[in-house]
Design a protein around this nucleic acid. Structure first.
Lengths: 228, 228
DNA sequence: GTTGGTGCTCAGGATGATTTCAGGTAGAAG
DNA sequence: CTTCTACCTGAAATCATCCTGAGCACCAAC
């Protein structure tokens, strides 16, 4: 599941098999999907569905993918178009047709590849639809593998990353060292609890939390992240 | 067939043989070609044809290639000029004449060489006319099987190509070595993960990414391609 | 055959992460 | 104030990961 809530994709292909396959796959990834079986229908549905991404087969009845693409682009709305071109089509013709699209995928393609292309398009044209959860002054971005603190990315080791993520997700809650060890290091960890103190210190350093106001020590009980 | 639809080339040469030879050749490559038999005609035709590339013989009646080039450049339109110079011309004179041109080819030349020069010009001055998809400073062209980095084509082995394509398409995302192996080498690959490190290194070399800022190492997590 | 390019492995060194430790500090209880 | 204890801290020691240069096997082109 890499798809994001709120991303709308319009699929247009005249082959019902492919259409259904892609629809199920993309919906399963969390995208909001709408389908059309020819170019004219695609245009009509795009009107009210307002998709972020349109995936167009080139060879379609009524209106081919290229014309649909051009019409979509004329509307000057921000929409990304990905073309599906058949491998056996004459090369130069396909080359001409795909001009104007934002990306194209040559059939046959793997579903993974289409997903990657969609992601790439989203990142280029709709960056705000992607990326992370905001919690107080933090932003957890699992996809990028980084945590921002006040818009700045923290340079964290894997353990630091895991610990900070755990603290932020459980902010306002007292977390005993035992609990932290179990959750971040795993219950099979054999070492001393002091390791938690060491890593808490490291985080406080990197967060500039000199007064221990962000990560509070509750003597005898554990630690608590306070996002005021 | 390497030419792209939509690229317009104006040919000017006073020798009908050469003119026809080049016209047929370039048209066969998919370019839109227009011809002129002297300098004045070339200028006139350029006016309405609006070529992307002008190929000028230097020695022509009415107006020589150098003057045509200067006039074309004065129009402040984006146009690439490639000069054709005769072999028997004195070298430094050729050098002087070709000043102002974007490139020149010495007669006799192979058609392949001219094609290569045209491609190079397109890459430099009209990158969007080339096929493929632009992602950050990269341009993926699957049809041609090449990846450009800042307008320059990279010389990549098949595996390097696959890896770079995967990284670029998934830029901004942490990619573990396992994930990379599965996607680029295939899940049935039996070897060591070190192979990923080796190929990452090779890519970093070819990209001039000495500081590892483009392809970032996230210790313990994987790699991430960072554009912008 | 020879050459050159590619894919992969290996071993060492470099770099960074993790853990331990020993001493210092500061709340809490009496 | 004293004492006890939990926590903090800096550095050292250990450990893991990653980088790198070299080398081998394979295949295709010449």
């Amino acid at each position: 599941m890499t798809g994001e809530k709120g991303v709308k994709i319009l699929l247009a292909d005249d082959e019902p098999n492919i259409l259904q396959f892609l629809e199920l796959g993309l919906a399963g990834e969390g995208y909001e999907v709408c389908t059309a079986e020819n170019g004219a229908e695609a245009l009509r549905k795009a009107e009210e569905f307002r998709p972020h991404i349109v995936i167009l087969d080139i060879m379609m009845p009524e209106m081919n993918g290229f014309d649909v693409c051009r019409k979509l682009k004329e509307r000057a709305e921000n929409v990304a178009v990905i073309m599906l071109s058949a491998k056996d089509a004459v090369d130069d013709r396909v080359a001409g047709l795909t001009l104007g699209a934002d990306d194209y995928v040559v059939k046959p393609f793997s579903f993974e590849e289409l997903l990657a292309r969609i992601q790439a398009r989203l990142r280029n044209q709709f960056p705000n639809l992607l990326g992370g959860v905001e919690i107080g002054p933090f932003r957890l971005d699992e996809r990028r593998g980084e945590i921002l603190y006040r818009t700045e990315a923290l340079a964290l080791s894997p353990t630091e990353y895991g610990l900070l993520k755990f603290l932020v997700l459980n902010h306002g809650i007292v977390l005993s060292k035992t609990k932290i060890l179990d959750s971040v290091w795993g219950y099979q960890f054999g070492g001393e609890e002091n390791i938690v103190e060491v890593y808490i210190r490291s985080l406080r350093d990197k967060l500039g939390d000199k007064e221990h106001r962000l990560i509070r020590t509750l003597r005898g009980a554990g630690y608590r992240m306070d996002l005021s």
